[in-house]
């Protein structure tokens, strides 16, 4: 009984006590080792069941926490206190995969450089850029600590400023601004009144485009703001299109998408979708 109590105490949300933390880490390692061993030793059928079981248990947590009746103020059930540690755990697992991404990048570009493939110097730039940002970014971070270490020399701050404010930020802004050019040419090319519906769409588009800018407001500025027909001022008409025509359509789409997401979640949670991620459906 004492043993059971001490085991149970491991699973209570508690401040980060050293021993408890070590025990949790140990338990996690053992669980992973057991799962790995099972995965290697079980046959295809057993493996499928194992994956289905783990998927089900993992998916159960958030659903159960949301639907289980709550008591008290703030309203809680027996799982509520676990939301934070479980979310943190998910974030940490996600963070590990960043390493995989960087490994993939280094693999592709490393091969380009090693085999002197066409454009290999671009790959070299990639390594230089990644290294520079990593080194000077970390350096900058250490300078920003409330008590910076005296041995950290401050001169790389200037380099970081050049890399971040001088290169990264303007490159990002410039890329986003490319969209203006793309949308102008795409709108010109794609917008043709081939049907009556396309005509309606174009009318709505013109109203919204003009309603969004002062030029549109200026075009219909002769209509007094408090007149009965002020509705026909372009900025009012534009907002009306957005609020009364666009909004119900958006709601409809969100409705359908949400149900689709629910169905997809159920299929994955209950491992119904075998054909795609697991083995072929018989």
């Amino acid at each position: 009984m004492a043993l059971l109590r001490s085991v149970w105490s491991l699973f209570q949300p508690a401040p980060n006590r050293g021993v408890l933390l070590a025990a949790i880490v140990l338990a996690a390692i053992i669980s992973v080792a057991i799962l790995y061993a099972l995965h290697r030793t079980l046959g295809p059928r057993g493996r499928r069941w194992l994956i289905a079981l783990v998927t089900f248990l993992a998916g159960l947590f958030f659903g159960l926490e949301f639907f289980w009746p709550v008591k008290g103020d703030p309203a809680k059930n027996f799982l509520t206190d676990w939301i934070e540690p479980v979310s943190t755990m998910i974030a940490i697992i996600g963070a590990f995969t960043v390493g995989l991404g960087i490994y993939s990048l280094c693999q592709v570009h490393g091969r380009n450089v090693a085999q002197r493939r066409p454009g290999w110097h671009n790959s070299l730039t990639f390594f230089a850029a990644m290294l520079a940002m990593l080194v000077f970014g970390l350096w900058e971070h250490y300078l920003h600590l409330p008590q910076p270490l005296p041995e950290v020399v401050p001169w790389p701050k200037g380099i970081y400023e050049i890399l971040f404010n001088g290169l990264f930020a303007p490159l990002q802004a410039a890329t986003f601004s490319l969209l203006a050019f793309y949308i102008a040419s795409a709108a010109y090319r794609a917008f043709r009144i081939r049907t009556a519906e396309a005509g309606l769409m174009m009318a709505a588009a013109f109203i919204v485009m003009l309603g969004q800018v002062p030029f549109g407001a200026w075009l219909t500025s002769s209509i007094p703001v408090d007149a009965g027909w002020a509705f026909f001022r372009l900025e009012v008409l534009g907002e009306w299109v957005m609020r009364w025509l666009n909004m119900p359509a958006q709601r409809g789409i969100v409705f359908g998408v949400a149900i689709g997401a629910l169905a997809m979640s159920l299929r994955i949670w209950l491992s119904l979708e075998r054909g795609t991620f697991f083995t072929e459906q018989s």
């Binding site: 789409i253 998408v257 149900i259 689709g260 997401a261 979708e273």
Partner: peptide
């Protein structure tokens, strides 16, 4: 929209 979820 939800045609996307009908894809598979």
């Amino acid at each position: 929209g939800d045609e996307y979820y009908a894809a598979s």
